[in-house]
Amino acid sequence: MRAILASLLLLSTPISAVVAQDQYQTEATHAVIMDFDTGEILFDRNGDVAMPPASMSKLMTVLMTLEAIRDGQLSLDDELPVSENAWRRGGAASGSSTMFLEVNSRARVEDLLRGIIIQSGNDACIVIAEALGGSEEAFAEMMTDRARELGLESASFANATGWPHPDHRISAADLAELARIIIADHPELYSLWAEREFTYNGIRQYNRNPLLGVFSGADGLKTGHTEESGYGLVGTAERDGVRRIIVFNGMGSNTDRANEAERMMRAAINDYALYDLFDAGDALEAQAEVFMGEAETVRLEVAEDVQLALHRRARRNMTVSVAFDGPIPAPISAGDEIGRVIVEVPGQEDREFPVVASEDVAQKGLMGRIGAAIAHMIRGN
């Protein structure tokens, strides 16, 4: 049977504390806060629900470009042709966010990256898409396939720009993971995301990210807005070696987005912390009962490091226990997995980590097993 052996941490606050007090509150329809180092979701509101991401999906277009540069398919100095299609659907003629590329001109890849990241240029996205995929439609399929390879299961891209389309969707959690991949895998060009302005074709445009220059340590990533999606942001900041990623969508105005960006990032940095609960090999006070063993119990230890990022108030309401299906039949070898450390935080899913035996326990000899069986029958359990 399943047995909870012992509480491993003394708590200063009862579990009856109101769960909502331990959670960030937001008017965004979709939101997550992610710890960069662990990838753990610290706060989640509809974070796994696929949503229209608007220009935030340009993160995937940029990632595809960065991977093409890494793989030698493109270089920063390559000049790509600006088709009439890219100009008409994403340039000045489109009335949408644009880099103001001229039709039938050529643009350097490095400038196109700045045009996407800083100016949110739809024309730059289409130029990249046509260069790498032959057409924007084919490139969108490539984006979706690559996203699935990366484990971004909610992602479905219909274009390179984020233009509204019923099949163009991704969750806030997957956008956060996408940002994490860009930061971790492409540090050589990551500084582009922090640039405040870019002038191309004589036209100066400013980065729309409301965190840049306002929140110390902020250095990326991308805003988004359509009538369907509302106002959203994928943002990140690093302070004192701690980096957080925030994603939210569905705000009602540009001002609302700016206010929420600063408020959510401040909470992400200040209200959440990483807690080292155990190191691999740490002994537990609890011991597991052994059946038919030369010892009646076996000592337990944690099999891997246990590190969690939690809201500081939620930490006070956390409980940690160890559970197993027992008693454990002998023989037992040191390192055998025989249980789980269970971390419970009100309002969050339980998390489990493996527990192993710290020592060998041999099986009783024949006479010992007979005696134990007789005793078991007498006790009736």
Rank of each mutant, 00 (worst) to 15 (best):
A3T: 14
Q23C: 05
V32P: 02
L42G: 05
R45I: 13
N46Y: 09
P53G: 12
P53L: 03
V62F: 15
L63K: 06
E67Y: 14
Q73R: 14
D78C: 08
N85G: 07
A86P: 07
A86D: 00
S94L: 02
V109K: 05
E110C: 07
G115T: 08
G121D: 00
A129V: 09
A129H: 11
E130S: 09
G133Q: 11
A138T: 14
E141A: 10
T144A: 08
A147F: 09
A155W: 12
T161M: 07
A172K: 07
L178H: 11
S191G: 01
L192T: 08
L192F: 14
R196A: 14
N209D: 08
V214P: 04
K222P: 01
K222V: 05
T223P: 07
G230T: 09
G235T: 13
T236S: 13
G241T: 05
G241L: 02
V242R: 14
N249M: 13
G252Y: 01
N254Y: 01
E262T: 13
A267V: 02
N270V: 10
D271P: 08
A273W: 04
D276C: 08
V290I: 15
R312Y: 04
V320P: 00
V320W: 02
A330G: 09
A334G: 14
I338A: 02
R340N: 04
R340H: 06
Q348A: 12
D350T: 10
R351P: 02
A357M: 01
E359Y: 13
G371I: 05
H376R: 13
H376T: 11
M377V: 11
R379C: 02
N381H: 12
